[in-house]
Amino acid sequence: MSIIIDEKTKLAVSGLTGREGSFHGLRNKAYGTDLVAGVTPGKGGQDVEGTPVFDTIKEAVDEAGANTSMIFVPARFAAPAINEAIDSGVETVIAITEGIPVLDMLATYWKAKEAGVRLIGPNCPGVLSPGKANVGIIPDSFFDPGPIGVVSKSGTLTYQIGNELKQAGTGNSSIVGIGGDPIVGSDFIDILKLYEADPDTELIVMVGEIGGDAEERAAEFIAAEITKPVVAYIAGFTAPPGKQMGHAGAIISGSSGTAQAKKDALEAKGVRVGESPTETAAIAVETLRG
C-alpha cells in the first residue's frame, strides 16, 4: 500500500495549460498516474496531449471522475483555486504553488478542515507513491518502492535522503512533501497517522527544519501514538536568529523554533536524529535491518 495517492488516483491539474503545469502534469502521467483532466478557466474544450481541459474543477470531477486536484497556478490566483478544489468534491488537494499569502492560507486551511478535504502544501513538491503514482514535482527516478515512509518540509533535501536510501538498496511506501510555509494543509502529525495505519510502511523518516513548532508537536505525538520506528533529520542549525532562509516558514525568532530545540524535543521522546542527510539515511537502513 501507500498513502494519499495510488493506482486509484484520478488527477485533475489546475494550470495544466501553463508551461510548468504541463511539464510536470505530463511527467506525472508518464509515470503512470491517471491524469484525467486539466483545468483552466476559459480553456474548457481544449486538450493537452489528449488530456481534456475543463473550465472548472467541478466539471473535471463530474465529467472526468477526478478525485485528486493538483494546484499549479501562479501565487496570486492559487488560494482561490485551492478553495475551488475544496468545493469541487475531490478527496485530496495537492498545492505545489510557492508564495501564497499566509493569511489566505489561514482561511483556506479552515475551509479544507470543515469540508473534510485533505490538503497537502502549499509550497511543496507533492506526493510520490513509488511504482503507483506521482502527483507533483518529485523526481521519481530517485525512489524505488519499499518499506520507508518519508514526510518532509523540504523538496531537495528529501531527494537527497531518498537517493541515499535507494543506494542502500531500500525504498519508499510514499514520499510526502508537506511544504515549508508557515501554514500548510497537513502537518507532520497528519501524515504520521497515515503511515502508522499503512501496513506497507515499516519505518518513517521525518525531515524538518527551523521555524514553528510542528516538529516539537510531532515528537509528543510520536511518543503517544506511533508504534513504528521514526528517524528524523532537522536542517538549519547554523541559521542565525531573525533571518529568513528561503522557505517562508524557516525563520526563527528568539530561542524558540531552533534546530537544536527540535532535535532535543525529538530525542527526548526516543526519536533518533541524524546529523546529516547521509547519517539519517544510514540510521534508517540500520534500524530497518535490525
Partner: peptide, 14 residues
C-alpha cells in the same frame, strides 16, 4: 532548494 541549502550550511559548520 531552501532545505538542502540549510543542510549544506550545517554540514559545512560540522
Amino acid at each position: 532548494g531552501a532545505g538542502l541549502c540549510m543542510s549544506t550550511l550545517d554540514v559545512v559548520a560540522q
